[in-house]
Amino acid sequence: MKCCKCNVEMIEKKTTFEYLGHEANYPVLRCPVCGQAYVPEELAKSKIAEVETLLEEK
C-alpha cells in the first residue's frame, strides 16, 4: 500500500478511533509522512461495527 500524496509505503500503526465520546485503537496502515489512513472493508464491517454496536447500547 502506497500513499499517493507522499509517494511512500504505508506502515501499520496504532490508530485512534472515536465514537460517542469514547476512544479505542487498532493498528491500520498509515502514511508515515502525512498520516493518511487506510481502513479495509473487512475491518469496517467486523470489528469497527462491533465496537460501534457495543457503544450504541443496542
Binding site: 485512534t16 485503537n25 469497527i48 462491533e50 465496537v51 457495543l54
Partner: peptide, 14 residues
Amino acid sequence: SSESMDFNEFTRRM
C-alpha cells in the same frame, strides 16, 4: 478517562 485500548481488548473488556 479510560486508557485507550484496542478493538479486541475493548470488545473483550465490555
